[in-house]
Design a protein around this nucleic acid. Structure first.
Lengths: 127, 127
DNA sequence: CGGCATCCGCCCCGATACTG
DNA sequence: CAGTATCGGGGCGGATGCCG
C-alpha cells in the first residue's frame, strides 16, 4: 500500500528526485535533527535544556533545526510571557510518530559502535 | 544495557560530543546514505544500477557514499575483472542490520508525506 | 563500465556581537 | 532566558574532463 502524494497524484517514492519525500528525508538527515527529536522524547524541554542536552550544538543550529521541525509539524513551540521568558518545546503526535524510527536509528548506532570502529580499523591504505 | 565503547571505556552516548557514535550518526545522516543502503536491501547492485535507481545522485557523491559505507563495514565491493568491467555492491550483515531502522525511516516519511506537506502549508508568514 | 581528478560555487555551520 | 543578525571559512556537492 503506497501513499499517494496529494499534491502530485503520484505514489510516494523517495528514490524519485521529484517526490517531496526526498526533501523531507534530506531535512531529517540534517546534522542535528535526529538528536533534537530524540531528546524531546524525554518530554517537554526548554531552549537551554535542549542546548545542554545536545553537546556541541550552537545557538544558531539549534534554533534553525527547531524552526525546521516546527514548519514540518513535528514540534510545537510554546512561549510563556514571563520574566525571564520561558519557551517550551514539545513533540506533536506526528513528531512522536517520527521519533520511533529516529530513536531506533540512534540506538542501533550506539549498540553497534564497536563493530563499526572495528571495521574502520580494518580499512587500511584506502586513503 | 548500554554499550561500552571499547576505545574509550565510556558508555555509548550520541548526545555526548566526544562519543564516536556522533560521527557515525553524522555520516549516516548524509544526503545519500539512506537511499544507497535502502536500495541495496533489494539485493546486489552494480554501480550503474545504483545510479539509475537513485535519481539525481552524481557519480562523485555515489562513489563517495559507497566508499564511506565500505569503510564503516556496511557494504562490500566486488570487482569482476571482465571486459567490460563489473563491480557489485552488497550489504554486509552489519549493513543489513543497519538497513532495518533506515528503511523504517524512509517508509515512515513516505507514509506521512501528506501530513507533513499539510503542516508546511499551515506555516504562514514565518519567513 | 566504473570510476578518478579537478575546479568551483554555494550554503552549512560555527563564532561573535547584540536585543527584548 | 531565548533568541536575532552578521560575518567568514570549510566542505558538501555538481559539472566537466580523462582513464583502464
Amino acid at each position: 500500500m503506497k501513499t499517494i502524494v496529494e499534491s502530485s497524484g503520484l505514489p510516494a517514492d523517495a528514490f524519485s528526485a521529484k517526490c517531496p519525500t526526498r526533501q523531507v528525508l534530506d531535512h531529517i538527515a540534517g546534522k542535528w535533527t535526529i538528536l533534537v527529536v530524540d531528546a524531546l522524547t524525554e518530554g517537554t524541554m526548554r531552549y537551554t535544556e535542549l542546548s545542554r542536552r545536545i553537546e556541541g550544538v550552537s545557538q544558531k543550529m539549534l534554533t534553525q533545526t527547531l524552526r525546521g521541525l516546527e514548519a514540518d509539524g513535528f514540534v510545537t513551540r510554546t512561549i510563556h510571557p514571563t520574566i525571564p521568558p520561558r519557551v517550551d518545546y514539545d513533540l506533536t503526535s506526528l513528531g512522536r510518530s517520527l521519533a520511533e524510527p529516529i530513536s531506533a536509528l540512534r540506538q542501533w548506532t550506539e549498540n553497534h559502535i564497536n563493530e563499526i570502529e572495528h571495521a574502520r580499523r580494518q580499512t587500511r591504505g584506502a586513503n
